[in-house]
């Protein structure tokens, strides 16, 4: 058993998150899927830190968390304001920008 397993798990989680973005319509769930993808990336970063014996990977994961927190705040605010005007949180309903 090697740390490679963590990486494979990370890849699997990332893809599950990606599929979630693709197939869910509720904007909040889509957002959660994005968070899952970010977490999968964090898992990979932490594992790389261990493999390389350097703390830089953990620092990276820390920054990803910070950025994710900021992103969630803004993203949820956007979802809120869209919901206020359109009474819907479905990403399919916001499709005015098209042909």
């Amino acid at each position: 058993m090697t740390p490679t397993y963590y990486l494979v798990l990370s890849a699997a989680l990332f893809c599950v998150g990606a599929v979630g973005v693709l197939i869910r319509r509720n904007a909040i769930v889509v957002f959660m899927s994005v968070e899952l993808m970010l977490n999968a990336g964090n898992l990979a970063l932490v594992t790389f830190a261990r493999i390389n014996g350097s703390l830089d990977g953990q620092i990276m994961a820390f920054f990803v968390m910070v950025v994710a927190a900021a992103e969630v705040v803004v993203g949820l605010a956007i979802i809120m304001s869209i919901f206020r005007t359109r009474r819907s949180a479905s990403v399919d309903d916001s499709n005015l920008l098209k042909y």
Binding site: A18, V21, L22, V91, D92, K98
Partner: peptide, 17 residues
């Protein structure tokens, strides 16, 4: 070609993936 621009974010995401 512009029919590809459906306005659905998920279609674009699928293309990206």
């Amino acid at each position: 070609l512009r029919r590809l621009q459906t306005g659905f974010v998920r279609s674009y995401a699928l293309t990206i993936l």
